[in-house]
Design a protein around this nucleic acid. Sequence first.
DNA 1: CAGTATCCGACAAGATACTG
DNA 2: CAGTATCTTGTCGGATACTG
Lengths: 112, 112
Amino acid sequence: MLTKGGCPKNMLSIRDALEALEGRWKMLILFSLSTGPKRFGQIAKEVTGISDRMLSKELKNLEANKLVKREIYSTFPPTVEYTITAHGRSLENVMDALHYWGLAHRKKIMGK
Amino acid sequence: MLTKGGCPKNMLSIRDALEALEGRWKMLILFSLSTGPKRFGQIAKEVTGISDRMLSKELKNLEANKLVKREIYSTFPPTVEYTITAHGRSLENVMDALHYWGLAHRKKIMGK
DNA sequence: CAGTATCCGACAAGATACTG
DNA sequence: CAGTATCTTGTCGGATACTG
């Protein structure tokens, strides 16, 4: 439940969250990784429409924010694997809420 | 809980949600309105940093998406009041999740 | 495969000034 | 008070081409 009254305080944390999740890709990438570790190409395939460039940029940002972990394996050819961290996983509440709300919203707006 | 497997389907609803909530202001405006109906100036004061222009634009967008309702009262001077709709209110789950996650994130990143 | 480099357009958003 | 108009800047993100 939202606390009443001291708005500014609560807003700060929402601002923090929004800042870390800004743009149209981060949540989708995280969502893709929520079903298991994946490689660059695999993520690119699941997150429809994203370019290599954006995926690269976003993954770096997510790594800097400790939402994703990047690991290189010295196989041949070397493979790189991205895993969602525990901290990233803690976003599943948000993604879940967003998912259900998105469903309702589509009905509401696009006409039932 | 997130369903496993059919990612594309679930992603669609997340995309819908993200689209409706894009930008750094909408959620904050909605959050401000979640504590009660407010007038333009009041929202502007609570959502620190927003310009009149952006607030005006965002309110229109939120109204188009049926998240906010705008009412004019023929007092003198005429007052305009913005109220969050039931549909907007259903976002409180999201805002709430975001709020708690933002708190945790700040600790994680800014150093405990 | 897993990216990086460069270029560029579109739009988000700030600053400022003005209106009923 | 509750905005609109105009101008400018900044950033997001797409397209293309290239590398180990």
